[in-house]
Nucleic acid binder design. Sequence first.
DNA 1: ATTGAATTGAAAATATACTAACAAACTGGT
DNA 2: ACCAGTTTGTTAGTATATTTTCAATTCAAT
Lengths: 154, 154
Amino acid sequence: MPKTDKFSHTPSGAAFTELLLEVFKLNGLLLTEGDKLTKPFGLTSARWKVLGAIAETNQPLTVPQIGRRMGLTRQNVQRLVDAMADEGSVEYQENQDHKRAKLICITKKGQQQLTAIMQKQFPWANRCAKGVKQSDLKQALNVLRTLVTHLEEN
Amino acid sequence: MPKTDKFSHTPSGAAFTELLLEVFKLNGLLLTEGDKLTKPFGLTSARWKVLGAIAETNQPLTVPQIGRRMGLTRQNVQRLVDAMADEGSVEYQENQDHKRAKLICITKKGQQQLTAIMQKQFPWANRCAKGVKQSDLKQALNVLRTLVTHLEEN
DNA sequence: ATTGAATTGAAAATATACTAACAAACTGGT
DNA sequence: ACCAGTTTGTTAGTATATTTTCAATTCAAT
């Protein structure tokens, strides 16, 4: 049982720190790839994430709800949603439960964009995952989820 | 042996895609934590990374070298380094091997900032890593490194 | 030596994302 | 019904990061 040393890294603390640096790098690479993937359809990684969050839930969401699902601030999501509404990918819908917090829906155009992107994302994701064992990917996913949960609680 | 399906996710492709989303979330949380950690010393996550890259190598680096190590563009690193030079955390040093590409050194002030931050980062990292088995952290690290390598090659 | 390719610095435009602050709307307890 | 606390919309300011473009420098091959 490793102690929580205040003056140096425990072995786990060192591994965690190395993991951080790799998360930063991977994040940058994934955003760049996502931008390339979505650009032909007039979207970006960030806007794709908004469509994905709504589509995954299969029902309209408020701006703060989207933010919480993606781990982003509501202010940032609001900016993205406003731009996407201007471009016709999403639209606002009155919310009977809350006068201010309108619901965000995907338009037909947004659905078409999302579908087209998925057609490119499928083979890309399958290619990326190819050299790695599925069980390893799932375990890495579990580790990251645990860390996210811990950090969200703090 | 899973095929590389072009029309849907393979099980590995699906796991990879889930992993992506978690990387995005974790990246955001880590940057926020890093900002809090470094703020008392007049730094940010991004600037801390610059100091870390130079300190880790134990020798002055050029701006593009720092960028390559961190997975950032040289233009972005240049902006950070210029600001940090103004603030006295780093300084430029003539490079005999290249008239334009000056070397970036950590100043005494930068070194003090880095040391002070480490003193806070140690217990924080140890605390974050506590609930996770060291072997799991290392395996997750390996998976992420593999993915980064694949994506860097593309 | 010379030339073509790659690297670097510099500047600008754009996108992403956070914090802070304030008012409007909602929620729950009394 | 009322009040305090929370959530949401909005705006503003700042930091991070990429792409693009052009000129200066370096490198490598001939």
